[in-house]
Design a protein around this nucleic acid. Structure first.
Lengths: 341, 341
DNA sequence: CTGAAAGCGCTTACAG
DNA sequence: CTGAAAGCGCTTACAG
């Protein structure tokens, strides 16, 4: 563990001031050509890298973002994280992720931790968003938002005026419903999520409106709020399957739940799509590799990430007012649904 | 974006020096009770949080770790990351992840980035480990290792003397082979990975030794090195399936490949396990939810993470010499293998 | 184009 | 138990 070499060492050996070295490295000011060459060679000689912590303290920008999400084991979030991380990296930013496991408590810790670490902005994609008791915490987030730019991805908190970048989940859900109608389904179940979370509410709204538009009664027994976690879905499925009358198709709030539904149907001797049609949401990389492959709605992950980061960057530098960016979704038709008569 | 409040503001209002505030917060020195109370109340009043960037610069410890891995979309890595992040957080550490997408180039950038960000230690679980041309880069890692503690998780680099925390993959693979033998399989294929990577070499060693111990000839046509990525497995499977003679069982280097194999078998009209037995490795959360559920070997993720972080902590503070910690694996028997006669 | 100096927000010997 | 001061490694007006 040898001593780090600093800008002083470089300056000394190059016979210039540290200011000159700093200017050369940042490229923001002109430096005489001979000096440039000299400095560069010494930098290379020692493999010198400027200390970003020191830069951060000095400039007040740490070049890091914080990312709050409820469960990075869900490939939806893993994918979004990956895309954000990849794109942010090209802009010189690194990411801290706060995996809240859907615990409000942990979310608070992370938020504080991010502030302590001088992150330049917060991407918020879950946690409280998935909690119905959000009101209590509004002021908490609100305070953070007053300190650092905060951008919601695929959701928002009531009462907080923030920029948001999101998929058109309403549109996606509408496509799913239309698709199921087109296949002849009128009896459609809805599994997963919790009331009060945007990801749920939006889809539920479409679900009800679409059914009504087809003059189909909503069967409340076919709506089961069971969260987003694959481990909790089994029970929900059993509950649905124990109904006297079963729907012919089930919409699942995400692909993980869809997998769980298909798996449990299989355990109970029902085949998908022969005996039951199932559709998911998110188009995680596994949905195409499941048996059967799962019909779902895809987000444009890359664009979501790019837009979120770009928006964050303008928020940081131009203090821009809150904006809302909505991206198209796409129905991915695969083999988990069957036409019925 | 209001002005951050600092230790100076607290000190001023409490009528003490910043040193006293600092001592109170760190808890490392005694501070008179009245002052404590006063300071505490002011801290709470302003929601003051010490700036970790400044602390880092001052103490030389940023309280962050860097984590290098090849593909966080693979639930094996997501899980390991989650466990490390969770445990490290309890110790006050945050994590930067460097997702290399198996590109040596990116790995170098991340390594440099970590150093620039003054991370206190590096967890290394992939990237170059999965690259056969590691020799070229040895000195690269070696240099980093001389700057910061570096711990390998589930692998190591030849020629680098480093601490490593790993699963007993040899033992796990032996269990798999014994299990297959016990079910009557003698014709066993091997899909995934690349020669030169530890995760592959160890399993391959067991594979060959076990076959030989049973006096079974190794059929080189049944060994297909196709990497670790689910998207690249399909071709490998097709290649194996186009053979005149097929094995009765296939070992897959990880569960993602196993999923891919089962899926492709299914596409080709073969049923698992009736027509073909398949076993994976890693016990990702999906393997129990696939159809059929997949027999695999599980790592003790939580212990792996805990041991790695604890070891890192002692490396940082006690400059301890390199150690090797090996954790037991466990065969998880599910429904992807069949007894044959 | 360049350098001396102040400042970013902390910690920690040192002296009392 | 406490404070003044130096230092961590940078950046950036300011003056030239």
């Amino acid at each position: 563990m040898k001593k780090d070499i600093t800008i002083y060492d470089i300056a000394k050996e190059a016979n210039v001031s540290i200011a000159t070295v700093s200017r050369y490295i940042s490229g923001k000011s002109n430096v005489k050509e001979e000096k440039k060459a000299k400095i560069q060679s010494i930098i290379e000689k020692y493999h010198y890298k400027p200390n970003k912590i020191a830069q951060g303290l000095s400039t007040k920008y740490s070049k890091t973002f914080g990312l709050i999400l409820p469960d990075i084991m869900n490939p939806f979030f893993t994918k979004l994280f990956t895309e954000i991380e990849k794109y942010a990296f090209t802009k010189g930013y690194s990411i801290f992720v706060g995996n809240t496991f859907e615990q409000t408590e942990l979310e608070r810790y992370y938020l504080d931790n991010f502030i302590e670490r001088m992150i330049d902005g917060i991407f918020y994609m879950g946690g409280l968003l998935y909690n119905t008791k959000i009101d209590i915490d509004n002021h908490e987030i609100q305070r953070k938002k007053n300190i650092k730019p905060l951008i919601f991805i695929n959701g928002y908190l009531k009462g907080i005026n923030c920029s948001v970048v999101r998929s058109d989940e309403m549109g996606g859900m509408n496509q799913i419903m239309d698709y199921l109608f087109q296949l002849g389904h009128k009896e459609i179940g809805f599994i997963g999520g919790f009331k009060g979370a945007i990801a749920f509410d939006v889809k539920m709204k479409s679900y009800r409106e679409k059914l009504i538009s087809q003059k189909i009664d909503v069967n409340e027994n076919w709506i089961i709020e069971s969260g987003y976690d694959i481990t909790k879905a089994k029970k929900a499925v059993d509950k649905l399957f124990s109904q006297k009358k079963m729907p012919t198709a089930i919409f699942c709030i995400n692909d993980l739940i869809a997998i769980s539904v298909i798996k449990e149907a299989n355990n109970l001797g029902l085949r998908v799509p022969e005996d039951l049609s199932v559709v998911g949401f998110d188009n995680i990389f596994l949905s195409g590799n499941y048996i059967p492959s799962i019909t779902t709605v895809s987000h444009n992950y890359q664009e979501l990430a790019k837009n979120a980061v770009d928006l964050m960057l303008t928020c940081i530098h131009n203090k821009e007012n809150s904006r809302s960016i909505v991206l198209k979704t796409q129905l991915i038709e695969r083999n988990s649904c069957k036409k019925i008569s």
